[in-house]
Write a protein that binds this DNA or RNA. Structure first.
Lengths: 334, 334
DNA sequence: TGAAAGGTCGCAAACGTTTACGATCCTTGT
DNA sequence: ACAAGGATCGTAAACGTTTGCGACCTTTCA
């Protein structure tokens, strides 16, 4: 249980513990023969450097706080995977916090992370209000926002070009022959505002009527999309395609459609957004817009590392390109 | 950037910094009026206690290392979610590490976590060899294994009763009328050995022939299951149901079946294991065996906390009950 | 042969806490 | 009035590192 310290190996080697420290860190001011002797002795005795003591004097913990609303979400767990892998490859460890559904938790965990002396924070915001919410802390530690567009607010973030995503999506539907496309989604977060804008822009260019079914004031989940879609389908269906602002919503719509015997894609084409793994499943095979999650995560940690290691001060907005994933839920209308 | 320390507020309050520390920690040996004065001053100055300095003297980091093969896996991300929530509710933070596909990484991250001075380690093993792999470290820090059965090896773990899961699953298929049930899965991990055993036991009791299609030496993934199932279906299908040892495998089988126009569940019933979220999706609707992931995670951190806080030494094996989730991929045979 | 130069290594301070111990002051009981 | 005791606070050590500075020894060149 008692771990071996520098002092222990120093005593065993017959040198001061400063020498041992220098041997391990590869300092030039040390004899090569003593260095090798000490290094060998170190792993004989099973010495591992105590990172908390090290952090204390170095004023650097090599720790990155990762805040996500919920790690069980497929989108976030994929971001987390690549973020952790990349961070560790560069010598950082990840401290994971779920911020849950309420804004208060978000503030709480960020404060917690600050107490832990993390070198930087990577945060997947709950909503566009997150920025205001944790504003008091973001100047105390390098921070980058991931997955949410903060427009021109003074923070660094990396997202996908949301409006372009819906733009190319509706254009694709148009090219398939669809002329009545319903947009299904909420708009009170910036991300979703932008997605709606992309749809609107495409409609304008193509001379299409803009038709919205709002899921305002509700969380984006399969069950939620399902409930809303049941309402939607109880009214006459005078459109041939639905653009769901989220894959989760699209999945809910699909469930409602199947239940009410509305053929997808026969009667109704459906397209989602995010390209979460579930969309690629057999029988689902949902056409969607891909967010380059791997690239987003890698860019985010690179950005954060740049702030941490080089003290870069400015705010950089990295906006990656979405792409269309053609699958089975979109087809020419009758 | 420079954070405020105990010394700073002590100077501002005109007391020694030991007094401030005592005021914050709620020590009895301090005047109530000075305590309140100091506490008010603390959040006026925005003081947050430095956890790494605190850990140094307390010899306790309130940190739990969580090692999972891949956090993007739905099963693991759900475990991670509940584990983090429960851990934080009890004052611990989670340090997340993906151990990836190879055993070496598993060893590496555990060693890393030890250097970080975590109070305990929660590990979802890659395979049953994991125990041997990290054996050298498990006596240095409280450890509990999650999701893998280590039989009677000297370690604490929490899993589901795997053999009971397949047992009730095949019994269910039998009751539906199936008499030729194929078991699809590998057997070289203990977990999968147990699952196979449950199937075998049920077959014996019911007088059924045991039929295996081995996916040995391969990772359990949708693609892998798909490839194997294509091989399987190129041969005559003289069975009416398949028990897939994993939901991922079941999904791959489903994909292959759809492609080769084998009707599920019309011609072939299919049941999986794990009840990952994807199985509940519309159109998938896979019958499966549920692992109580939330309970597993909560029990695991409770077990770990007991070891950490009370120094409990023994090895406890917590084996939770699986349950059958009846959905749409199982039906009476023709 | 002498001193300067360079190579090795030890001493000690510092990082920000917690806490045992001692010091001081005030209260209280006889 | 005096001692005992309790309440309150300060002093200092400790946790395990890193690193600037100085000390010592060896080499090398004039």
């Amino acid at each position: 249980m008692k771990s071996v310290t520098l002092k222990d190996v120093a005593k065993a080697a017959g040198v001061s513990y400063a020498t041992v420290s220098r041997a391990l860190s590869g300092s030039p001011q040390i004899g090569s023969e003593t260095r090798e002797r000490i290094i060998k002795l170190c792993d004989e005795m099973g010495y591992t450097t105590n990172y908390v003591a090290r952090s204390m004097v170095m004023k650097k913990t090599d720790l990155i706080g990762l805040v996500v609303p919920s790690i069980e979400n497929q989108f976030m767990s994929e971001l987390a995977y690549y973020a952790e892998m990349s961070a560790r490859a560069h010598g950082y460890n990840i401290m994971l916090c779920n911020s849950g559904p309420d804004l208060k938790q978000e503030k709480t965990v960020v404060k917690l992370l600050l107490g832990r002396q993390v070198d930087g924070i990577l945060i997947v915001p709950q909503s566009s209000r997150t920025y205001e919410n944790i504003r008091a802390y973001t100047d105390q530690v390098p921070t980058v926002f991931l997955g949410e567009n903060l427009r021109d607010q003074p923070q660094s973030y990396v997202t996908v070009d949301n409006s372009r995503g819906t733009y190319i999506g509706t254009k694709y539907l148009y090219e398939l022959g669809h002329r009545d496309i319903l947009y299904f989604g909420r708009r009170h977060s910036t991300t979703h505002q932008l997605r709606a804008e992309g749809y609107m822009k495409a409609c304008q260019e193509l001379g299409l009527q803009q038709r919205f079914f709002n899921s305002e004031f509700s969380r984006s989940s399969i069950n939620n999309g399902y409930q809303l879609a049941k309402d939607l389908f109880s009214q006459p269906i005078d459109y041939s395609a639905i653009f769901a602002s989220t894959d989760s919503n699209a999945l809910g719509i699909l469930k409602a459609a199947d239940e009410m015997r509305i053929d997808v894609p026969g009667r109704l084409s459906l397209i989602g957004f995010d390209n979460i793994p579930s969309t690629g499943l057999p029988r689902i095979d949902l056409t969607t817009i891909e967010q380059p999650k791997r690239d987003m995560a890698l860019q985010a940690v690179d950005m954060l590392r740049d702030k941490i290691e080089n003290g870069t001060q400015g705010y950089v907005h990295q906006i990656l390109l979405p792409s269309l994933i053609k699958r089975g839920t979109c087809r020419e209308p009758d």
